[in-house]
């Protein structure tokens, strides 16, 4: 009898311990999510005061002169990201197609491995690479060199998603096209790639989201500027860089500008992410 009670008691203890442990895991998940909301909430709270027409249409003012904006930095980031997309997309898509179609054997799997490892290289090291290759020889900073660093950061993402997208196209579609007498290149370019287009674009979106918030590789490539600049061969203002420079300055007005810039940046980056995610999900449910 006493044994039964003892067993029942330990069982109860185990149930309680189980419940408490599950609760603690929920707490961990909840606090991570809460941290995001906390940060987002604070950025909105601190940044909203800066947002206005002048902030979105003017260039930065010198210290002491109130007002000014980040318009040139927003345009600069847009130009730099656009150039990096133009640089990375053809190479990334072609390499992804290669891995998907011819990607068997040791060579292909080592390329995949190398690509995965490249995805983990710190962006600042890639910035140094861009500096040595495209800044040092020309002796001045340029948006092009920043875009080059971005392109290197984007490539692993584009290649991986393109390969998966091409592989997910049913083999019957490829075989059907070949059976109709289409050559391999036409089958790939006119049948397989169009079928995988949505997935490839999703990968492109993810890679754009990845680089848009990057600051480190721009420090000694695009460098930043206080003025309007449209020539990619020159140093160009960049939104993340502008936020960084404002934040580490000693001036409260500039800190305020940093929060405003952060709000714009976070909205853009989260929008790109959610867009890519929604595209992924809609395809997964199909």
């Amino acid at each position: 009898m006493a044994d039964v009670i003892a067993v029942r008691r330990t069982m109860q203890m185990r149930r309680v311990r189980s419940g408490v442990s599950v609760f603690l895991t929920a707490l961990c998940a909840g606090s991570a999510a809460a941290a995001l909301l906390l940060i987002l909430g604070y950025v909105v709270h601190a940044g909203i005061a800066s947002i206005g027409l002048p902030f979105l249409t003017q260039v930065p003012h010198p210290v002491g002169i109130p007002g000014g904006g980040v318009a040139n930095a927003i345009v600069g980031t847009g130009i730099t990201v656009a150039i990096s997309v133009v640089m990375a997309t053809p190479l990334g898509v072609l390499t992804g197609v290669y891995l998907a179609i011819y990607g068997r054997g040791a060579a292909a799997s080592s390329i995949r491995f190398l690509s995965d490892v490249l995805a983990g290289v710190p962006s600042i090291a890639i910035g140094l690479f861009a500096y040595v290759v495209l800044v040092a020889p020309f002796k001045h900073f340029s948006a092009i060199s920043g875009a080059f660093a971005f392109a290197v950061l984007m490539l692993p993402v584009i290649i991986r998603t393109t390969e998966e997208a091409i592989r997910s196209v049913p083999i019957a579609i490829r075989e059907g096209a070949l059976a109709l007498g289409l050559p391999i290149y036409a089958t790939t370019l006119r049948v397989v790639i169009p079928a995988a287009r949505a997935a490839i674009i999703t990968g492109l979106l993810l890679s754009i989201a990845r680089v848009t918030g990057e600051t480190a590789p721009l420090l000694f490539t695009a460098f930043g500027s206080q003025f309007w600049e449209f020539n990619p061969a020159n140093p160009m203002a960049q939104l993340p860089l502008q936020i960084f420079n404002y934040a580490i300055s000693p001036y409260p007005e500039w800190h305020q500008q940093a929060w405003g810039g952060a709000l714009i940046l976070i909205v853009v980056v989260l929008f790109l992410n959610i867009l890519a995610r929604a595209a992924l999900r809609s395809r997964a449910s199909r």
């Binding site: 918030g213 600051t215 580490i248 952060a262 989260l270």
Partner: peptide
Amino acid sequence: FLIELLAAVPSVVYGLWGLF
């Protein structure tokens, strides 16, 4: 979804929040 978005926040925003 929220935890995954945490990875999307730009590092300069983390720095800004951390600093101030």
